Simulated assay, not measured.
Amino acid sequence: MGAVTAVLLIATVALTTIAFPSVAATTCPGCYGLQRLQPGLYAEPGLVPPQRGHVTEVIEQANKRVRDFFGGRASTPDILVCLSDDCYRRIGGGRERGVAVLNRSVMLSPRGVDPVIASHELAHVELHARLNGAEVPQWFDEGLAVLVSDDPRYLAPTGDRCLLDSRQPLPATLDDWLRAASADPQLYAEAACQVSRWAGTNGGKEAVRTLIARLSTGQAFPDIQMPAAAATTA
Rank of each mutant, 00 (worst) to 15 (best):
V4E: 14
C162D: 05
G72N: 09
A220M: 03
L131S: 10
S22I: 00
S216L: 03
L80R: 11
Q35V: 10
C82M: 06
S196K: 01
F140D: 04
L144V: 08
L80T: 12
V136L: 03
L174A: 11
R97E: 12
G112I: 14
L147Q: 07
R97C: 01
G92C: 10
A14P: 01
A181I: 10
D141T: 14
E126V: 09
E206D: 08
S182Y: 05
I10T: 07
T17D: 06
H128I: 05
A118F: 05
V99L: 09
A43D: 09
D78F: 05
Q138I: 02
V55W: 11
L34D: 10
I18S: 08
D175E: 13
G71D: 13
E60T: 15
R111D: 15
E121D: 12
E126Y: 13
S166Q: 06
P45Q: 12
T17K: 05
V48D: 14
A189R: 09
A24N: 04
R67M: 07
A19K: 05
A6G: 09
W177R: 04
S196F: 03
R65M: 08
D85K: 11
V106Y: 02
G200I: 01
L131N: 10
T232P: 00
P115C: 11
V7K: 04
Y154C: 01
C28E: 08
T158M: 03
L8P: 00
L9K: 00
V113G: 04
S216Y: 07
S75V: 10
A24E: 01
V113R: 10
D150W: 04
R161L: 02
R153W: 03
A156I: 00
P171K: 08
D175M: 04
V136Q: 10
S196N: 01
S119G: 13
R89T: 04
A24F: 01
T201N: 11
R214W: 00
C31T: 08
I10V: 04
A231W: 02
C82T: 10
V13I: 11
E44A: 10
A11N: 03
D85S: 15
T210P: 00
R111F: 06
F140S: 02
A207K: 07
A156H: 12
R97D: 14
S216P: 02
S119R: 10
P39N: 13
E96T: 15
R95D: 14
I91K: 12
A207P: 02
A129L: 05
P185T: 06
R209N: 02
T27E: 13
V48A: 15
R52G: 14
S75G: 08
Y32C: 09
L15W: 14
A74S: 15
N202G: 08
D141F: 05
A14H: 00
T16C: 09
A100L: 01
Q186L: 12
P115D: 09
E135S: 03
L83N: 05
G33S: 07
G2T: 14
A234C: 06
H54K: 08
A129F: 01
D141P: 02
Q194W: 01
L102G: 00
E142Q: 11
E60R: 15
Q38N: 06
R89N: 14
E44Y: 03
A3P: 00
P49R: 13
H124T: 11
G204D: 06
M1F: 04
F69S: 11
R73L: 15
I10K: 06
R73W: 09
